[in-house]
Amino acid sequence: MVQFLEMIENMGIAVWVRESPSIFAYTLVLSLHAIGLAIVVGVSAMVALRVLGRFDQIPLEPMIKLFPLMYIGFWINAVSGFLLLSTNATNMLTSTNSLFPMLTFYIKMAFVVAAVLTLRILRPRLAAGGTQQGAQGLSYALLGFWLGAIIVGRLTAYPYFVAAWLGL
């Protein structure tokens, strides 16, 4: 496992993102990750809030057309996230050196997977008018999962703080 992760860390693109002094390496990838977050979470949140009854002058069914926009945000973050991960794969995915940031990273990924699955389940319900009980619950869940992903994602940048906070 560790050998495989070290292989990823030594891939040309991972080395470049990590070590190149170019502004297009680490800093641009980091910026793309923030842009993707804003798109996928922001657009998701507007759809969820609409299902929950806010901005009810906006017709709900055509909001399905916003899903491709969300998926653009999602894929920007899948790719930029993989690149960021590849620069530090062993520390992010195993506890070889420390329990953190591995733990927060896995929790963040669980939130992201849950949010994307919720989006997929919610989508066909928008076509049906989104008035069913299920759609409301899914919308609350979607907002909660994205909020969780942002909170734990930020904590991933503070491994020492999290360790101290948990008394570890």
């Binding site: 842009i35 804003a38 942002i150």
Partner: peptide, 22 residues
């Protein structure tokens, strides 16, 4: 940031011709 980009971004994208029907 997500709230700002989500709200203003949707409006901008629709003006540019995406998600017609809204």
């Amino acid at each position: 940031m997500a709230l700002l980009i989500g709200s203003i971004g949707i409006l901008d994208c629709r003006i540019l011709g995406l998600a017609k029907g809204l």
